[in-house]
Amino acid sequence: MTTVQRRSAIPTFDNSFISRLQKQLPELVPPAIAIAIFLVVWQLFSWTPGATLPGPIQVVQDTWILIFWPFYDRGGIDKGLFWQILASLQRVAISYSLAAIVGISLGILIGTNKIMSKALDPIFQLLRTVPPLAWVPISLAALRQNEPAALFVIFITAIWPILINTAVGVTQIPQDYNNVAKVLQLNKKEYFLNILIPAALPYIFTGLRIAIGLAWLAIIAAEIVMSGIVGIGFFIWNAYQNNAVSEVILALVYIGIVGLLLDKLMAWVQTLILPAEQK
């Protein structure tokens, strides 16, 4: 007696791309549907009488040129979105790196040295709570020029999470590792390299990830206030002044996408450096 084999209901293709896509379908379908619904709702709201904001269709129609020609450059601050975003990112890159270096060093100092911790803690706690925008006037007054002031604002915003998380990471080293170091009588350098840094790395990375998000936030705010520079923040403000609300909305979407990508970038760097079970 022969047995009948049932063929699977879903037709499988040889094409590996499509088969991978099929496997990812459960992941991709819900967000896609949610985005579609959101757009529909937004469009409906924009059609109600008395709506102040344009709907998605209107936005795309108005910013058509900006979407498809991001690389144009007509001099001054009239540049394509790509150049605007790049300028902002450059500022973030410089300040963030500086903040990372200073933050990690100070964090280790506070974490390992009790006296320094007691001395500096009140100052840090006070400065930490000042929002980025509030730093703008004082940095402009001190540095007088827009570019350095913007860099300073990003720096002062991004440094706090890095510093505090590093300090916590250093103090949270399990007593066991410290005991091992004591018994083996490791000198300071060996201790730092072999025990302190690797043990505090997860905390440091948490700080770094939080800081990149804050840095991106800060630059937008700073650029809005400082006029006349190339940057996505000033682009938004300029568009608002010219009542080009669609451009503002487009810029918002771009800012969000870039922020998301930055975070994903940091996460990927983390997987490179930290071993799997330490996360």
Binding site: P174, D176, Y177, N179, V180, V183, N194, P198, P275, E277
Partner: peptide, 20 residues
Amino acid sequence: TRPGPDRMVVFQNYSLLPWR
């Protein structure tokens, strides 16, 4: 007066460095 490698300790929870 201080710990040293002439008195090595085997701890209860191993104390191995997980990144090595």
